[in-house]
């Protein structure tokens, strides 16, 4: 969108200024905004994934009200916009008289983050985690249900408890299915953190908007923010690709191509090891 807009503006001759894009690229507040975005995304994804796993188990419970609760939860958080949930939590915090106690324990200034306030971080963190939990519940369900029931039966017949079989047998296999959509979720999470700008979280977009006004160069500074978003999602793309390859290694001789291979090895992605090669390799041993 910004690239298209850039062309239009350059054509309109209003003086698009690349210097301005670079001016704030390593600005203190921009870097701080990028850092808080990453930290918020990692924490929310982590708790969201745990909530998702918990919801999956609740859905499989024998106790009906627990199943109802899980279904209701997922129905609500997948059925309302994230921005609405964010504002709802933000306002609930003051309605339940939580703002003052939260302000009193706000530790961000002592960490050097003078613009980050706990009263914005906390509702955002909770909203993102709760929302992510609902989506992760679906992803975890898809992952675990893709594992043949025979695996659990075999584990139990070896004397494993349900929990042990889950941890040792089912989840490691389900992880292969879960990791690609999880990576997708985290990529979305990195970008969705920008929604918290409405409740006063001084993250990347909010900082960029503020500078855009100051210098009357909004497009340039929003491009600066876009560069950082792209940097974050690109780094995550490499991490995800690495994780997928590692998880696959233990299960199949066929290696999916890495991100670099997908991008630079001709027009059609080639597997590193073809099945024929792998069989030949096994034959040699």
């Amino acid at each position: 969108m910004h690239v298209a807009g850039l062309t239009v503006i350059a054509a309109a001759g209003s003086g698009f200024d690349w210097g301005e894009v670079g001016k704030y690229l390593f600005d203190r507040d921009i870097l701080q905004g990028a850092l808080i975005t990453v930290v918020m995304a990692v924490l929310s994804q982590f708790t969201g994934t745990l909530i998702g796993l918990l919801l999956y188990l609740m859905r499989r419970s024998n106790f009906l009200p627990i199943r109802w609760f899980a279904e209701l939860y997922i129905w609500f958080f997948r059925g309302t916009p994230l921005l609405v949930q964010l504002e709802l939590l933000f306002l609930s915090f003051s309605e339940f008289h939580l703002v003052r106690p939260i302000r009193q324990i706000d530790f961000f200034p002592s960490l050097g983050f003078d613009r980050i306030v706990l009263e914005a971080v906390l509702p955002a963190l909770i909203a993102f985690s709760l929302n992510e939990g609902a989506y992760m519940a679906e992803i975890v369900r898809a992952g675990i249900d893709s594992i043949d029931v025979g695996q659990m039966e075999a584990a139990k017949s070896l004397g494993m408890t349900y929990g042990l079989a889950m941890r040792r047998i089912i989840l490691p296999q389900a992880a292969r299915v879960i990791i690609p959509p999880l990576g997708n979720e985290f990529n979305n999470m990195l970008k969705n953190i920008s929604l918290a700008s409405v409740i006063g979280l001084y993250e990347l977009l909010r900082v960029a908007e503020a500078y855009g006004f100051t210098d009357f160069k909004p497009v340039e500074v929003v491009i600066t923010a876009s560069i950082w978003y792209l940097a974050m999602t690109t780094v995550w793309g490499f991490i995800q690709s690495y994780m997928e390859r590692r998880l696959n290694a233990s299960n199949t001789p066929i290696q999916p191509p890495s991100l670099m291979q997908r991008m630079f090895s001709g027009w059609r992605p080639k597997p590193v090891n073809t099945t024929a090669e792998a069989i030949a390799e096994i034959g040699q041993h």
């Binding site: 003051s94 309605e95 339940f96 008289h97 703002v99 700008s197 409405v198 006063g200 503020a210």
Partner: peptide
Amino acid sequence: IQNVQFNTIIAGITSSTPGNQY
């Protein structure tokens, strides 16, 4: 001074009881 998006400000002032708002 808190930098907040314009549309959220009045809700942040009128919510809850005096002393417990944002």
